[in-house]
Simulated scan of single mutants.
Amino acid sequence: MFSIIQAAGWPIWPLILCSIIALALVIERFSSLRTARVAPPKLVDEVLTVTRSNLPSPDVVNKLADNSVLGRVLATGLRAVINEPRISEANLRNAFEGAGRAAVHQMERYLNTLGTIAAAAPLLGLLGTVIGMIQIFASQGGGTGGNPTELAHGISVALYNTAFALMVAIPALMFYRYFRGKVDEYVLDLEQAAERMVPHLMRFTAQR
């Protein structure tokens, strides 16, 4: 492998850097976008049960916010009702929407970088191949007496850049699409949770 890297020349080093960054981002996103850290399945039901008769204390709300991304969104709605007992439904929905936008921004973190690597890696590989081809033909001196075997070998070496670039770009694109789909699913979960919480919390504003 090291001999291949040496033969491919300096253009392959940006691709190696992209591959390391892409691997780190994939591992980080797998950890951050786990269901337990974003939207635990029964969290909304638990919150509805706890707040069936009265609003929770600030300590309980803080623990909810530290639970997950969904917990942070739900805690924002609870704090809005606690801090403003006469809050209108429109303002409560605005509070949920603001928290939801922040949550989406957090879930989409690094995805643009991963998508950029997936798009840029083939271009970097093509650049490396073109540079290699230029060097090969320049070394032939423009004459007709070049060794065909050496020329074929040089072209195969130049194509290492394109091959390695595709090895980086294809997995990066697949993981980018996968994580985008996960984020879209979580966004739907957040929206449905907010829709369930709004009428539930509005009961407390009517009682005050």
Score class of each variant (00 low, 15 high):
residue 3 S to Q: 12
residue 3 S to W: 11
residue 4 I to A: 12
residue 4 I to R: 01
residue 6 Q to D: 15
residue 8 A to V: 12
residue 11 P to R: 08
residue 11 P to F: 09
residue 11 P to N: 10
residue 12 I to T: 10
residue 12 I to P: 03
residue 13 W to E: 00
residue 13 W to P: 05
residue 13 W to C: 05
residue 15 L to D: 09
residue 21 I to G: 00
residue 22 A to D: 03
residue 23 L to R: 00
residue 25 L to Y: 00
residue 25 L to A: 09
residue 25 L to R: 09
residue 25 L to M: 04
residue 26 V to D: 11
residue 27 I to H: 05
residue 29 R to N: 02
residue 32 S to M: 14
residue 35 T to N: 13
residue 35 T to D: 01
residue 37 R to H: 11
residue 40 P to Y: 04
residue 41 P to L: 15
residue 41 P to W: 14
residue 46 E to F: 14
residue 47 V to D: 00
residue 47 V to T: 13
residue 48 L to C: 03
residue 49 T to D: 14
residue 49 T to E: 14
residue 49 T to V: 10
residue 54 N to D: 15
residue 58 P to D: 04
residue 61 V to L: 15
residue 62 N to H: 14
residue 63 K to Y: 10
residue 63 K to C: 08
residue 64 L to K: 10
residue 64 L to N: 02
residue 66 D to L: 11
residue 66 D to F: 01
residue 71 G to P: 05
residue 71 G to A: 04
residue 73 V to M: 08
residue 74 L to I: 00
residue 77 G to M: 05
residue 85 P to D: 10
residue 87 I to V: 14
residue 90 A to G: 12
residue 90 A to M: 06
residue 94 N to K: 14
residue 97 E to K: 08
residue 102 A to K: 15
residue 105 H to N: 14
residue 109 R to P: 11
residue 111 L to C: 07
residue 114 L to A: 13
residue 117 I to R: 08
residue 117 I to Y: 08
residue 118 A to V: 04
residue 119 A to D: 15
residue 119 A to L: 09
residue 120 A to T: 13
residue 121 A to N: 04
residue 122 P to V: 10
residue 124 L to T: 14
residue 125 G to C: 14
residue 126 L to C: 11
residue 130 V to L: 10
residue 131 I to D: 01
residue 132 G to Y: 04
residue 133 M to R: 00
residue 136 I to V: 14
residue 136 I to S: 07
residue 136 I to Y: 02
residue 137 F to L: 08
residue 138 A to V: 03
residue 139 S to W: 02
residue 139 S to M: 07
residue 139 S to Q: 06
residue 140 Q to Y: 14
residue 141 G to V: 07
residue 143 G to T: 10
residue 144 T to R: 11
residue 144 T to A: 15
residue 146 G to I: 07
residue 146 G to S: 12
residue 146 G to T: 14
residue 147 N to G: 12
residue 151 L to K: 10
residue 151 L to C: 07
residue 152 A to K: 11
residue 154 G to D: 00
residue 159 L to T: 13
residue 159 L to A: 12
residue 160 Y to T: 09
residue 160 Y to C: 08
residue 163 A to Y: 04
residue 163 A to L: 03
residue 166 L to I: 15
residue 166 L to A: 06
residue 168 V to G: 01
residue 169 A to F: 04
residue 170 I to Q: 01
residue 171 P to Q: 00
residue 171 P to V: 04
residue 178 Y to S: 06
residue 178 Y to T: 04
residue 179 F to H: 07
residue 180 R to Y: 00
residue 182 K to G: 00
residue 184 D to M: 09
residue 186 Y to E: 04
residue 186 Y to M: 09
residue 193 A to C: 03
residue 194 A to W: 05
residue 196 R to W: 13
residue 197 M to E: 00
residue 198 V to I: 12
residue 201 L to G: 02
residue 204 F to S: 12
residue 207 Q to P: 11
